[in-house]
Amino acid sequence: MIAGLPLGTWILMVLSTLPGLVLVVAAYRVHAGADRGQQRGGPCGPEAPQAHRDRSPDRG
């Protein structure tokens, strides 16, 4: 028992919170710079989404 709770419960509490936070922070660190480039329309930024619109065949 640690602070009144079994070890397994603490492990479950950590598993319930940490991996999710790590995933989104990692994704943020990877993409935030490139996304800012896209918003500014910088040379390394990917194409603006609007450029692809209405490509699907069933749209006039």
Partner: peptide, 22 residues
């Protein structure tokens, strides 16, 4: 508004859901 909002939104959403649920 754009994809940049998604990178930031993910961090806010997960932090918020942890507080909600716990």
């Amino acid at each position: 508004r754009d994809r940049g909002q998604i990178s930031e939104g993910g961090v806010i959403a997960v932090a918020c859901i942890i507080v909600f649920d716990i």
